[in-house]
């Protein structure tokens, strides 16, 4: 049984069909990367998984349990187990880095305040931001904000972490500090789905690479297979384009 099983998911924004029958399996402790040209629906798939966009067809199972995205209780339950880091960080602008990390565990999960703060300080130290705990988002660089966002997601102790183009809005010199944080998580065995354009990084950390175009899953395989021996013509085309750059 797979940890996460995505079967035939379709979704649309208004009249715009974004996902057309996506299927994908993810094993525990594995890192799956979604790659493909922009607009292929990678980010949308993550939004569907955390219940920000209800799917039209198909279903998702987690540990063998079907998630009913039209059921509020189901969505709430799944959001307790999944965490997402957004491309634009989406940090709460009115809170310090520390408050951003602690708000959900304290106010939503009603956990012990002192314990949560201890954990949050540890997490922020882990992403290298111990000194910036009391800073507000607008006082932090993009890379620092993104690492706060990662710490915020980890504070929820997710069983599955979704990373949505977490380096796409960063200046090139800030990318590596965020990637380092993710590498560390990978080493600790966190199950992750990563949307990324950093092909070198994808190749290095992923156990599975899934290539999407136009809301369809074109090819799924190991990084070596997808990057070196792509079976599909569209994958080959994409990989060649990337390698030329």
């Amino acid at each position: 049984m797979q940890h996460l099983d995505i079967v035939d998911i379709s979704a649309r924004y208004g009249s715009h069909q974004v996902l057309r029958g996506i299927s994908l399996g993810v094993d525990r402790g594995q890192i799956t990367s979604l790659v493909g040209p922009s607009g292929s629906g990678k980010s949308t798939l993550l939004r569907v998984l955390v219940g920000l966009l209800p799917p039209e067809t198909g279903h998702v199972s987690f540990d063998g349990q079907r998630i009913d995205y039209s059921n509020k209780k189901n969505v709430k339950a799944i959001r307790d187990r999944f965490a997402i880091v957004f491309q634009q960080y989406n940090l709460f602008q009115n809170m310090t880095a520390l408050d951003n990390v602690t708000i959900a565990p304290i106010k939503i999960r009603k956990r012990n305040r002192a314990e949560v703060i201890d954990e949050a300080e540890e997490l922020l130290a882990k992403v290298g931001l111990k000194e910036k705990m009391r800073s507000y988002p607008d006082q932090l660089s993009g890379g620092q904000q993104q690492r706060v966002a990662i710490a915020r997601a980890l504070a929820l102790k997710p069983e599955l972490l979704l990373l949505d183009e977490v380096t796409a809005s960063l200046d090139p010199e800030l990318v590596s500090e965020v990637l380092d944080s993710i590498r560390q998580l990978a080493a600790e065995g966190m199950t992750m789905i990563i949307v990324s354009h950093e092909m070198g990084f994808v190749r290095e950390v992923s156990s599975t690479v899934a290539f999407m175009v136009d809301g369809k899953m074109v090819e799924v395989g190991s990084p070596a297979d997808v990057f070196e021996n792509p079976k599909e013509a569209r994958t080959r085309e994409f990989v060649n384009k990337i390698l030329q750059h």
Binding site: L52, K76, A83, L91, F92, I108
Partner: peptide
């Protein structure tokens, strides 16, 4: 809008 998204993804209700 992304502040609402982040709040929802953390299981905050509308009121929260």
């Amino acid at each position: 809008r992304n502040q609402w998204d982040a709040a929802a993804a953390m299981n905050m209700s509308t009121v929260q």
